[in-house]
Each structure stands twice: as C-alpha cells, then as structure tokens.
Design a protein around this nucleic acid. Sequence first.
DNA 1: ATCATTCTTGTCCGACCGGTCAACTATAGG
DNA 2: CCTATAGTTGACCGGTCGGACAAGAATGAT
Lengths: 226, 226
Amino acid sequence: MGRCSDARDRLLAVASQLVHERGYTAVSVSDICKAAGLKKGSFYHFFRSKHELVLATLDRFAEHQEVGMQQALQSGRPVSEQLAGMLTSMYAGYMRAKRNFGSAHGCPLGNLAQEMAHRDTDIQNKLATIFARWQTQLIFLLRRAADRGELRVPDAERSAEALVAYVQGVTLLAKTTNDPDVFLRLAHGMVALAQAELPTAPAPIDVEEPSHSDGLHTCQASEVLS
Amino acid sequence: MGRCSDARDRLLAVASQLVHERGYTAVSVSDICKAAGLKKGSFYHFFRSKHELVLATLDRFAEHQEVGMQQALQSGRPVSEQLAGMLTSMYAGYMRAKRNFGSAHGCPLGNLAQEMAHRDTDIQNKLATIFARWQTQLIFLLRRAADRGELRVPDAERSAEALVAYVQGVTLLAKTTNDPDVFLRLAHGMVALAQAELPTAPAPIDVEEPSHSDGLHTCQASEVLS
DNA sequence: ATCATTCTTGTCCGACCGGTCAACTATAGG
DNA sequence: CCTATAGTTGACCGGTCGGACAAGAATGAT
C-alpha cells in the first residue's frame, strides 16, 4: 500500500558511483540527493544516515560480485591465464573508465578500505567479508589448477590471500602513477604468487629489536615523522 | 629578524599524524590548529592552504625516507631476508602502533594515494615520485642479489615494481582484516615476486572482447553497479 | 470512495568548513 | 633603544555539512 518508488535504488546506485569517485568523506548527502534527483527529506526516509547507505551499497556490491564469481569459476580456461586475466581485464576496465568518465578511480572496495577501515568497524567488517569470499573462490581455483597439474601450488590459502593483496596493490600503483600499463607489466606476478614457495625456515617470526629499522619500509611511520 | 617560532614544524608534524589517522578530507584546518596549539590565522601565515600543507608533509616524508633507505642498502644481510623483513618489520610497527595508539592506520602514503591520487594531481605526482624512488632502491637491491647469486632475478625492474605494489596490498589487507599476522603469512610472497618468471608468450596484450567479464575482478565496477 | 500508508517536499537547525583580515605582540639586527 | 619584520590573535565571511520535521501528494488495499 502507499506509493512505491525506485528512489531507494537510485540512491544506492548514485551513492556507490559518487563514493567510488570521490571517497566517503568527500561526498555529501546533498550531493547524493542532487544526483539522484530528490530532496534530502526523501533520503532520510529510506536511510537513517549516510553511514547506513554506504553499508547498503556494500551489500549490493557483494551480491553482484557473488554472481560474477560463480560464472568465472565455470570458465574452462587455463588457470594461469585466468589469473593474469584478472589484471589484464582490469587494464581494459581502466581504459574504458578513462574513456567514458575521463579518469579511473581504482577499486571501489580498496578505496573504501583504505579510507574507512580504521575508522568504521561496520564498514571494515563488511569489506573484510567480501575480501574473504574473494579469497575463498581463489582457493577453489588454485586447488583445481593443482589437481589438474596445471600449477604447483604449495599453499593455496596463502597464495589466495597474497593474490587478493597483490591485485589491490597493483590497482593502487596504477592509479597513483596514472599508468594502466602497470596492470600488464605486473600480470605475471599473479602466477608467481600462486606458485610461491614457503620459506624453508617455518617463518621469521622474530619481532626483532624494534629500532634497528630496515628503512626501506618506514611505512608505518607516524613515528618517523617526529 | 622578527620572531622565530617552531610553529611551522609543529604544523607539519601534527598534520601528517592527523591525515594519516583520519584522511585528508576528514581532517579540518581547525583540527590541525587545535592539535598544534595555535589559531587559524597562524596557520595561514605559514601555508597558503591545506592542500599546500599536505604537499609539504610529503616532502618531509620523502626526506626521511631517503635517509632510511640509504642505511638499509648498506646492511649486509641476505636479500631474501631483507625482503621478507620489510613485511615482518611492518608487523612489528603495526603491533607497536596498536599498543601505543589503539589501532594501526596502514601506510600513510597508501592511504593518501587511495584517497587523493585521482582528485589532486599535485599529490598524485608527489606520491608517484616517492614510489618510484622506492622502486629504484629495490632495483639496486635485487641486482646486487642477482650478481651475488643469491637470487634468480629475471627482471629486476618489474620485480621491484611488483614488490612496491605487493607491500601496499598486504598493508591494506592487514588493515582491512585488522589482522597483523597477514604480514607474517605473506612475507614469503616477496621472494616469489623477486624471482618471478616472465611469461613465455611476451604478454597477453589482447584487450579482449570487453563484456565477457571474468567476474573475479569486477573491481573497476562502477559499471557493474547499474 | 476512503483511508492508511508510503513517498516527497521545503524549510529550518546548529555546527563546522576553508579561508580572510586588521590589529596586536614579541623579537632579532642595527 | 628602536624599528622592521615575523609571528599571533580573535572576530568574521559565505557556504556547506549531516540531520530533523511538519505538512502535503500520490498510491494501494479495502
């Protein structure tokens, strides 16, 4: 009863677009409303807050992703080709985005994770779940490749985790250097990570003397900056 | 002549802290001033804008980084150990940050890159330069390892680039899952990427039929979301 | 035709945004 | 000691932020 409107869907669609383009903080509720063609009052009829809206867009994203992944697993192509294809087809997507919208904005999940993971546990959890599901699918893929003798996969779990990280890192680098060729240049790393050997020594778990500092990776460095 | 004050330095220090914790957009000039213990008027005496301040913090970061890298290159440890050590010592940094500040915020460069690279070309360029310098140092390291016969390095440039990406990706994953052990679990990937083989077929540069969609990597997907 | 429900609208709020400015104070160099 | 200069202050600007709300318009079920 009452009306029925597609406003909620429009809000979701527009919001994931804008948040992807500009980031969570930089997009205002008014921006979203303007783009969806309705007033702020309507917004707050459907969502209790901007925060809740973004969580909803993540749910929607996860559903879409799920469908896509199922299809991908059925493709019979060689696995090493499929792995590299993840990056080469991101190259294609990057070029398409650049052509259609003027520039590419990286991975919507990665962007949101980088911006919000340490400030919003709801968003963090939702993103972590999506990454985990992604990893699970990769494990399947890698195990199948190992069974078929296509690849040597010493540790499918770890390799899958490494692959998720690598894809995110490559995307970030492509965006930062504004150079889509990064996807092509680094595609071979996917296969390398899939076949990565475990260290002979179980793992260097020594939390070494903290201040000897290797230098090349001062990246945690709030501290470095006095 | 006139006064001399350390206010500028305080602003830089406080700003890199806050931007690292909350992101560029989410930190206001007033926040920075409050934390530095001075008024907005003073801020605009030293910097023409928030934008300019952040560029200055990046310069400062780059200088510190430079020093650290020079030291690291002189360490005589085995290169594979040094590579893995980049991640294991980030594990240490993560734990330290968590202990001291309650949570870790990932790599300040990565955060800024993800948030700003596609919206601010000045910041993008500065970040790209820092990444490039980082890569250069890694190339040195890898070449030396190859010369000594420590590692087989088929392509030092590409491996160095892949390593930079990988470190960023692993950091993001650790932050998103809030699980520092990721650094330890994925450390072996560093060695794998250093020794990654190039594909026998030069590269699958076919920009395949655009909509066949591999699914597992729908990550460019503003499009996927209707 | 009615009426509860769903949706839409416009207006309003206090807080804060990035940034400006003129007036004031402390200080180093002469 | 004096003064040019460097640094500081607090009040202020127009604009936007996330959010609240009462009132009205459209609709579906009865």
